[in-house]
Design a protein around this nucleic acid. Structure first.
Length: 425
RNA sequence: GGAGAGAUGGCCGAGUGGUCGAAGGCGCCCGCUUGCUAAGCGGGUGUACGCCCAAAAGGUGUACCGUGGGUUCAAAUCCCACUCUCUCCGCCA
């Protein structure tokens, strides 16, 4: 959520920044100004009248003769005043709710370092690591390779759940588990993150805090009887872990959480229908940071490096791109995508998304910190990034490290976790 | 699922209709004192949103004692509903 005060006092730069995302984003600010103005007059009026009533009421309490007609008359007047104030308060509450409703649908402002552009074609490549391997045989797509190896089954998954689900079997399941363990160990032991296992179901308030609600409800799986949602990413429970709090300790606070992720992906049918790239359920190891505002962009750099480290150790060629303004997610002010090379598609595909959200989520979720002893709390900056999406790592590893005989080489760093050097039939 | 207890400031904890933003303590900050990192003394110490002020400092108003509603001129305090926490019983991976 943007700072309502800024929106009112200095709307031009905000409007300009939103316009970089596209016309719809800029339009989301329409109609907010008059609501803010109305709120201000109503608030002042209500508070003034309430102040009057309070003093009058105190005087009444001090009245000597509580049986006198003067007492009764004054009491009657105050009762009427009270009713009027209540009416004002009701109006005010309505206006404030309206303001909140509108503000919650305005996306974050793209940071100045974010490139112009409408879609992913305008994303800026920052760096490239590793080199796409040249094969002396025709590399197979993971859905062919995986099925032949007997480590993934899409058909039976469809039978028991539906499309966009997969069953991992044998060494495939073990590979998934090895990747999770490996990622967690690197981030905990070497990068200093605290491991967290959060709930996989969260309420509306948490989903609103990080920005999935109210705008993107159709992308979520809703669990009826309790009005809960399956988490689309660990970002939601982990960021909201500190909602409504003042963090007293030193920043940054860093968490890493492994969770399943559930995405309804409404409207995405027809895209990436084959294989493991786009599933309703997948595993992800997520990095989350709470940082000082002045340092949050440095923290974004180091968080991105932390995620990159996993790809390097798995010997997977990748590149880092900065999302352009038009491609940026709703809550983010700046995002680096890590894209891994996929031989079957001869292209780089997103495997991690590392974002700085500035104070956008912190304002929604009321997450603050104390800069120093006795100082006033300030909003933190929140960040997160996949470190990494496990399913996509699984498939990238299969495709990149496949061998002519249909087996898969396990990179050295993963061997102790996987328990072997080769994955073969 | 059944029975009971509770929810107050960073923490502990008092407060059953007005003088309560809320005693007291802890913690923290500032100052003084003290011949060693401790103790003592004095003062200060919530958040949000308005308004005044060129701004800061400061002043001032309103709200907030789990949440929402009600009674009353007036609610932390009375009434109703809900949520959460704890204890016991049942069930359960």
């Amino acid at each position: 959520m943007l700072d309502a005060k800024l929106v009112v006092e200095n709307p031009e730069p905000i409007l300009r920044a939103l316009a970089r995302r596209g016309p719809a984003a800029a339009a989301s600010l329409d109609g907010i100004q008059p609501v803010v103005a109305r709120r201000r007059t109503l608030l002042r009026q209500t508070e003034d009248r309430r102040a009057q009533l309070k003093t009058a009421s105190k005087n009444l309490g001090a009245f000597r003769d509580k049986a006198s007609p003067e007492f009764a008359a004054l009491r009657e007047k105050l009762r009427a005043d009270g009713d009027e104030i209540k009416a004002l308060e009701a109006q005010l509450a309505e206006v404030e709710a309206e303001l909140e409703r509108q503000l919650l649908r305005v996306p974050n402002l793209p940071h100045e370092s974010v490139p112009e552009g409408a879609d992913s074609a305008a994303n800026r490549v920052e760096r490239v690591w590793g080199e796409p391997r040249s094969f002396d045989f025709e590399p197979q797509a993971h859905w062919d390779l995986g099925v032949k190896l007997g480590i993934v089954d899409f058909e039976r998954a469809a039978k028991l759940a539906g499309p966009r689900f997969a069953v991992l079997l044998g060494a495939g399941a073990r590979l998934e588990r090895a990747l999770i363990q490996f990622m967690l160990d690197v981030h905990v032991r070497e990068h200093g993150y605290t491991e967290m296992m959060p709930p996989y179901l969260v309420n509306r308030s948490a989903m609103t805090g990080t920005g999935q609600l109210p705008k993107f409800e159709e992308d979520l799986f809703h669990v009826e009887p309790q009005d809960l949602f399956l988490v689309p990413t660990a970002e939601v429970p982990v960021t909201n872990f500190h909602a409504d709090e003042v963090i007293e300790g030193p920043l940054p606070v860093k968490y890493v959480a492994f969770t399943p992720c559930f995405r309804a992906e409404a409207g995405s049918y027809g895209k990436d229908v084959r294989g493991l790239v786009r599933q309703h359920q997948f595993h992800k190891v997520e990095l989350v940071k709470f940082a000082e505002p002045e340092r949050s962009f440095e923290e974004l750099e180091s968080l991105t490096r932390d995620a990159e480290e996993i790809l390097r150790r798995l010997e997977l060629p990748y590149r880092v791109v900065t999302l352009c303004a038009g491609d940026l997610g709703f809550s983010a002010t700046k995002t680096y995508d890590l894209e891994v090379w996929l031989p079957s598609q001869r292209t780089y595909r997103e495997i991690s998304s590392c974002s700085n959200f500035g104070d956008f989520q912190a304002r929604r979720a009321k997450i603050r910190y104390r800069p120093g002893k006795g100082e006033k709390p300030r909003l933190v900056h929140t960040l997160n990034g996949s470190g990494l999406a496990v399913g996509r790592t699984w498939l990238a590893l299969l495709e990149n490290h496949q061998q002519a005989d249909g087996s898969v080489r396990i990179p050295k760093a993963l061997q102790p976790y996987f328990g072997g050097e080769v994955l073969a039939r």
